[in-house]
Amino acid sequence: MSDSVQAKQTKPVAFRGGGFSPIHIKWVGLSVFVTLILVLEAGTRSGFISNLTMPRPSDVGWTFVELWTSGLLWKHVLPSVSRLLVGATLGASLGIGVGILIGLFSYIRAGLVPLISAIFPVPKIALLPLFVIWFGIDETSKYALIAFGTFTPTVVSTFGAVDNVDRSLIRMGQSFSLSWFSIVTKIVLPGAMPGILSGLRVSLAIAIILLVAAEMLGAEYGIGAYILQAGSLYDLERLFAGVVILSVMGVTVSAVIGFFEKRLLGWRS
């Protein structure tokens, strides 16, 4: 027996697990960014990338410096931020309200879900001229467009979140004879909060996209107006500077939601 074991080849069992589990690696994302910018810089300086195709990153940087020193940066950013705040707050809070009503009441669900499904895919930009007639050319139509654009996705994600609240928790509430109002405020709403917040991530990104559309009509200042103007002037440096500002807004919104998730959803394992 032992002889035959001796005679047989012995080798370690080959490892075949591993992979398929994302791990957090620092700095890689940042270095991809930096490399891309360096390549662009070198390419535009050497003439390998024509200035018609891409702006020189350092020129975009200088555009920022100019925006900053001339005070124009805030003149453009502040109106956009206030449009975003008013419009998105309006749309999202209405959306959460209606979403919860749909989640709770079968009649409201039956009445409104088809309507919401019908208006969800309508490109809100297409309705811009109509909004101008309804709400005038000033700020109100911009608020309305952003609010309308955030409303529908928020409704859908909110009633989805309410539907997904663990039914066993609601049954528990009933078993302790909690009032309907207590069940809604203490069980349904907190339980729907993760879904509502992740829905807000999407809705607020849509709000930023719509900001540019909202500022197509009658906006003298604003990041969207700035980008549109840069586009029509074929001024790539300003165009990219504007796009970077929009990206920063997106990252900021995402960070704010992340903060709220940490504060409100710390209970999640």
Partner: peptide
Amino acid sequence: PLQKTGAIIGA
């Protein structure tokens, strides 16, 4: 700024 002549005419 209203982008298109159609929008201007409406406005």
